[in-house]
Computed example of a mutant assay.
Amino acid sequence: MTKHNIYTMSVASVYPLYVTKAERKGRTKTEVDEIICWLTGYSPEGLLEQLEKQTDFETFFANAPRLNPSRALIKGAVCGVRVEDIEEPTMKEIRYLDKLIDELAKGKAMDKILRKEN
């Protein structure tokens, strides 16, 4: 089975698009970083290191220090596909990230994006 092209793309090549999407809607790079760190367990320094190393998505998620167990609470559609229905693990992680960035750009509160208890 061939890999999806996104697996071999560097996170650093897509990261500026996440930031631009957020900033166009009045959000910040800091919030994008917080979301990525929450999802993956990377520290801000660890995230920066991965971006500088041009780590591809597959390696980025495979080497994530601690994938957040609350990520299973992420529901909804990204690009017409429901994230909860995706079976391939790496694609599911990528789509979780896409969904969180979408929520940020739509103005959702950070506590809700990060699935914090009320």
Rank of each mutant, 00 (worst) to 15 (best):
E23D: 03
L39P: 00
G80V: 02
T90L: 07
Q50W: 00
K99L: 14
F60N: 00
I113Y: 05
I35S: 08
S10D: 06
R71C: 06
P65N: 05
K29E: 10
E93T: 01
M110Q: 04
K92T: 00
K106L: 14
P69A: 14
V83Q: 02
E88L: 05
D85Y: 06
L97R: 00
T90G: 01
T20F: 07
H4M: 15
L17F: 10
K116D: 06
A12W: 00
M9L: 15
L67N: 12
T2M: 14
D98S: 06
E58Q: 09
A72M: 12
F61H: 01
A77Y: 10
E93K: 08
I6M: 13
E93D: 07
I94L: 09
M1Q: 10
I101H: 02
E93M: 14
V32N: 03
K106C: 10
G80L: 09
A105Q: 13
L51S: 09
L67A: 08
E103Q: 15
I74T: 11
G26A: 06
R66M: 01
M1K: 04
P44K: 15
L47N: 08
K3C: 04
Q50K: 15
R82M: 07
I74D: 01
T40V: 02
E45W: 13
E93Y: 08
T30A: 15
Y96I: 06
F57W: 11
L17E: 15
N5P: 07
G107A: 12
C37A: 15
Y42S: 03
E58H: 02
I6N: 03
W38L: 05
G41W: 03
K75Y: 03
H4P: 03
V81Y: 08
T2F: 10
E84T: 12
L73W: 09
S10M: 03
T2R: 13
L100F: 04
A22Y: 02
P65L: 05
A72F: 11
L97M: 15
V11T: 07
L114T: 06
L100S: 05
P44D: 14
T20N: 15
